[in-house]
Amino acid sequence: MAVVLENKRVAPDVYLMRLTDTPAKPGQFYMLRPLPGSLEPLLGRPISVFDCEGCESSFLYRVVGKGTELLSQRRASDSVDAVGPLGNGFPLEDRDLTVVGGGIGIAPLYYLLKAHRARFPGRKRSAYLGFSGDSFLTEEFSALCDVSKVNIGGFVTDDVDFSVPALYCACGPTPMLRAAKKRAEAAGAALLLSLEARMACGVGACLGCSCATISGNRRVCKDGPVFPAEEVLL
């Protein structure tokens, strides 16, 4: 059980919610249930950790259905069920870091950049953020980066030069990930993808979120959500 500290709208249908008791590493997620103990809605929603300070994480989510709608209605001091932290998360590597995010897929990349800056202050950080409509939280990203570029309505992957040596991390809609994978492969760049999937349990038991990889099916929730791009079959 976690308590809502803040739940603010950052764009139409996009919210940033800060919770108590939610420690996490960059790239991890929680299964959030808006009404603790309720059987309706039944399942948690996998929501990425956007940022984390100590034991308080903030979660960036878009209202797309019943569960996220109810989540958006929770107010400070309300309780929500938070199961986590879940998933493997991103590694922190001592080299330059470039993130590529599409829409709500920017969610796990902010904390990654922040942790990278804290650990490797001398390294260069770049962010390429793509949105189909309203952009959000782009200033927060630029504050952490040497280079930051926002693309509205176009293909964010067109902005990225994958031949520049760095670790590339991407999260967003599948077509965007597919394009990033193709370009990274052509340039011989190391690319990690954070995948999104429908899931029931979030802990590796239900196999609802299986994804195809070169070594057979893997679970997005437990074996991922972060995978080397060359391993996943998109």
Partner: peptide
């Protein structure tokens, strides 16, 4: 078995549908 393709889980009122396909 590799199980089924496409959507595998779908929430319903106080329940869920699954089509994992015995992976």
């Amino acid at each position: 078995s590799k199980g089924n393709g496409g959507v595998r889980v779908w929430e319903t009122p106080a329940g869920m549908l699954n089509s994992i396909g015995l992976e």
